[in-house]
């Protein structure tokens, strides 16, 4: 059985949501991980470590800038180096960028405001864990809730992201059209989520865990997790 670990930093507030979805919707084994923990050695590369959304350390100074110094981040890096899957959502994405596990930076939205809205995502490359099973012709409705979600990177990094098929999602409209009107926060190339070169560390601003149950009126997010689980199966990560 795939084991999931969800890290709680002081100020994380989507940790319980992530646990709920992985446990109740996908029947995974889920553990809470406290940010002061010193090791993730009990996790195998086929397991998943989630860095959930929220406002770690109040997002004071800069989003994710303090969390990256937490005890748990060293073990997270080691786990990623072993090929373990690390998924950062929203604040988790910001922390992964601050920690250098993902390239680029999340800047304040171009509207200068916090935005909570159901937006649409278009999968860009299907060679990533969260997009593996997705239809690149379809627009997936997933909510965002952030003030600092404008993805930025320099041109050479952007070229790498494109060449290595590291871009997971772009902001689009309900018809799947990627343009400046659908670029909700002003991200470079409408980027909503990326992964690292080795495709085991992923970060995205939108919240699929908030859109995985029909009861909530939207279950498009479910397909991202289904994708993730089948990616793990396909890549035979699971060790004895």
């Amino acid at each position: 059985m795939i084991k999931c670990g969800v890290i709680t930093f002081p100020g994380s507030n989507c940790d319980e949501d992530m646990i709920y979805v992985m446990k109740e919707v996908f029947q995974c084994q889920v553990e809470k991980i406290w940010h002061k923990d010193q090791t993730l050695e009990r996790y195998n590369p086929g397991d998943i470590i989630f860095i959930p959304g929220g406002f770690s350390y109040g997002d004071y100074l800069r989003c994710g800038a303090i969390a990256r110094f937490s005890n748990i981040m060293d073990p997270v890096k080691k786990f990623a180096d072993r090929g373990g899957i690390v998924i950062g959502i929203c604040n988790g994405f910001q922390i992964l960028c601050e920690a250098g596990l993902l390239p680029g930076q999340l800047l304040v939205n171009d509207s200068q405001k916090f935005i909570c809205r159901n937006i649409y995502l278009k999968p860009y490359s299907t060679e990533t864990p969260l997009t593996f099973d997705l239809n690149t012709e379809k627009a997936y409705m997933i909510p965002i809730a952030h003030a600092d979600g404008r993805y930025y990177c320099d041109d050479s990094t952007l070229k790498d992201l494109i060449d290595n098929k590291q871009i997971m999602f772009q902001y689009c409209n309900s018809e799947g059209i990627v343009n400046s009107e659908s670029n909700v926060n002003g991200s470079v190339l409408n980027i909503a989520g990326i992964c690292n070169k080795t495709k085991n560390v992923c970060g995205m601003m939108p919240h699929p865990e908030r859109a995985s149950e029909s009861e909530l009126g939207n279950s498009d997010g479910k397909y991202l997790f289904i994708s993730l689980l089948s990616w793990i199966k396909e890549h035979h990560f699971v060790l004895a």
Binding site: F114, C116, N118, P143, A145, L216, G217, N218
Partner: peptide, 17 residues
Amino acid sequence: YEQYDKMVRTGTMTSVK
């Protein structure tokens, strides 16, 4: 209301309709 997070805790059933 777009400046308020209305979905955290995944309990809100009226965020789409």
